[in-house]
Every structure is written in structure tokens, then in C-alpha cells.
Amino acid sequence: MRTPAPDEVEAALEPVRTELLRAAHAETVALLTRADREAAELLDGARAEARTILEEARREGEAQGAAAARDVRARARRAARAHELTARREAYEELRRRVTERVRELRNAPHYASVLGRLTGHTRRLLGPDAEVIVHPEGGLVARVPGRRVDCTLDALAARALDRAGAEAETLWAP
């Protein structure tokens, strides 16, 4: 066996070298392509994810904004409604106050004595002839027997009449 000349070795190894180089190139290209593709896909994915996050954030922001606006509207509506109801109640209380005052003025009317007479008759019908009848300083009277009592003061009469009027009071604020 002889040692081959260097140029022979060169020639013999040439195909191997070429093949190795080609394989290396091919592998590099494949790797690069794959890397590029993976990078592109990662980027695509990241972009999609970013878009989703943005969309989600926008949706959430819109929902929060809408909820906040709804809260503000609800508060405003509630305040307006509370004002309206308070005004109605005040009007109704004023009506009661004025009616009570006008009924109290009956004390100074010329036929007040006959009113008292009729009230006394009414209370005696309810409580019997022995009922103790006391004229009330604010007008009207109170009749009593032990354990029972009839309130015919002018204030009580006014209050009962107002309660009966009921829905008519709504004309105070009806359009």
C-alpha cells in the first residue's frame, strides 16, 4: 500500500466536500426558511394577539364607559324623580294645612253653635246619652265614656275629609 499523492486525495475527496457543502447549504437554506417562517408566524401570532388585546381593551373601555354613562343617567333620573315627588308631597301637605286652617275658621262662623249641636248629637248616638262631651279649644268636640271615645275635633274632621278626597288631590299636579 502506498500513500496517495496529495492531489489524488484532493480529487478523491472533492465529491465528498461538494456533497457536504451542498448539504450544509441546503440545511442552512431550510433552517433559514424555517426560521423565517417561524418568525413570520410568531409575528403574525403576536400581531393577532395584540389586535385581540386591543379589541378586548376597546370593548372593555366601551362597556365601562357605557356603564358609567348609564350610572350618571340613572343618578340624574333618580334625582329628578325625587324632586318631582318631593314637590308633589309638599303640595299635598300644603293642601292639608290650608284645608285644616279653613275648617278651623268655622269656629268664628255664625252657625258654629249648630255645628256643635249636630256633633254632640252624633257622639251621643255612638256613645249613649251619658257621654261626657268636651268642647275642644281648637274647635269641635271630644266625647268620652269609660273605655271609649269619639274624636269630633275640627282637625280630625278635616283630616278625615281629606283622606276621603283621595285621588282628587292628584289634580294639584296633574298636567
Binding site: 256633633l119 252624633h122 257622639t123 255612638l126 256613645l127 269609660p146 273605655g147 271609649r148 271615645r149 269619639v150 274624636d151 269630633c152 280630625a156 274632621l157 278625615r160 275629609a161 283622606d163 276621603r164 283621595g166
Partner: peptide, 20 residues
């Protein structure tokens, strides 16, 4: 409720019981 008993009670006043 101020008007529950509107239809039932008389405007002139009913008997109130005081013996509890």
C-alpha cells in the same frame, strides 16, 4: 297608609277604644 279605611270609616268620626 292614610286612606286604607276611607270607605269604611265615617267622616264624622267613629268610636275609638281606649281600654287596653
Amino acid at each position: 297608609m292614610s286612606d286604607d279605611c276611607r270607605s269604611a270609616s265615617s267622616i264624622w268620626g267613629d268610636v275609638e277604644y281606649t281600654a287596653i
